[in-house]
């Protein structure tokens, strides 16, 4: 008797789940947008991507006439969120707010169910931050010292990354190729723990952004040195720090954050979204919030945005091919 009841109750649970799945959203024709736009953020809560998306959403509704609703769909290096976007209709009511990691790195190292270049239309880039390599100031003075020491002791200098084949790991793979050196790579779960370990002297170097774990403040007060910056030209925040290119490593990587739509989304709808976002980028409240976060908007859309992603995708493809990384 008991057993039957248990089975009955499991049946009830499944019934609830199935009916929840059937509550699919119904599309509406006519003027765009007539209902809120969902923005899928393929990361966990609290990171810079999540924060940026929420700041945009908090202002853009004034120019869009409808709210943008941020939905976090993190997990599996962003592939779950990207795949979830592909499962929605290409009607402009679902966008994904991703980064270069999702379009240009992950598809090279993981099996994914989508083509990050052809299945998505780059809509609008909001901002970007250059990737950095940092060390304690009592460990390395500059990039040259780092490379010299690595040549003297191959495989002895450690680098803490934010994860296997993540942003930081990809950066040192390129440094290894161009400078003919070898790091001892230690993957952490996220950039914060990696930087903390570097500060504690457990690893020699770490990767990150100016905004990561108080890096800019530590650079300013002299406790850490930024050894190289993955940008085309030097950054206003740290004009003394040479770019990687200046130091013989051909690596440019600005971690950008931006909106993409599923392939097939009508161009007129994309234009409406781009227009609203362009106005948002000039909004006083938005500029104040972004300035506070430390990453002012640097908008890009249309062809230029697409070309940037293509170049980035190519760069990482070449790196992983040379290193011999296969998809897991």
């Amino acid at each position: 008797m008991k057993k039957i009841k248990i089975i009955k109750n499991i049946g009830c649970i499944l019934g609830i789940v199935i009916s929840m799945g059937l509550m699919a959203n119904t599309g509406l024709a006519g003027k765009f947008p007539t209902k809120p736009i969902r923005v899928i953020v393929p990361t966990g809560p609290g990171g810079s991507t999540d924060v940026t998306s929420r700041l945009v959403a908090s202002v853009v509704h004034q120019y869009l006439g409808q709210p943008m609703i941020v939905m976090l769909k993190g997990g599996a290096a962003g592939t779950i969120g990207m795949a979830a976007t592909m499962a929605e209709k290409a009607d402009g009511y679902t966008l994904v707010f991703g980064t270069g990691n999702h379009t240009s790195i992950v598809p090279h190292v993981r099996k994914v169910t989508y083509d990050s270049l052809n299945d998505f239309i780059p809509v609008f880039k909001v901002n970007n931050d250059p990737y950095l390599i940092i060390s304690r100031s009592d460990r390395f003075k500059n990039f040259k010292q780092l490379i010299d020491e690595m040549k003297a002791n191959p495989g002895k200098i450690s680098f803490g990354s934010n994860g296997l084949y993540g942003n930081g790991h990809s950066m040192i793979l390129k440094i290894e190729l161009d400078a003919k050196v070898k790091f001892k790579h230690v993957p952490f779960k996220g950039g914060g723990p990696a930087i903390r370990s570097m500060l504690g002297g457990h690893v020699d170097t770490a990767g990150g952004l100016f905004a990561s774990a108080g890096t800019l403040g530590r650079y300013k007060n002299g406790s850490v040195n930024i050894l190289g910056i993955a940008a085309e030209k030097r950054d206003k925040l740290a004009p003394d720090v040479p770019t990687f290119r200046e130091q013989g490593v051909d690596f440019v990587y600005q971690l950008w954050r931006g909106f993409m739509a599923k392939k097939g989304t009508p161009q007129d709808r994309i234009d409406i979204i781009v227009d609203a976002l362009s106005k948002t980028m000039k909004d006083k409240t938005f500029l104040r919030l972004m300035k506070a976060v430390g990453s002012p908007p640097n908008p890009l859309h249309g062809k230029e945005f697409k070309n940037m992603i293509l170049a980035e995708h190519k760069q990482f493809g070449a790196i992983f091919k040379q290193v011999g990384v296969t998809k897991k």
Partner: peptide
């Protein structure tokens, strides 16, 4: 981590320079 993001938006930059 979530609160840190919100503090940043309030113009408060957590870290040694705070």
């Amino acid at each position: 981590a979530i609160l840190m993001g919100a503090f940043l938006a309030q113009g408060l930059r957590p870290g040694p320079e705070l």
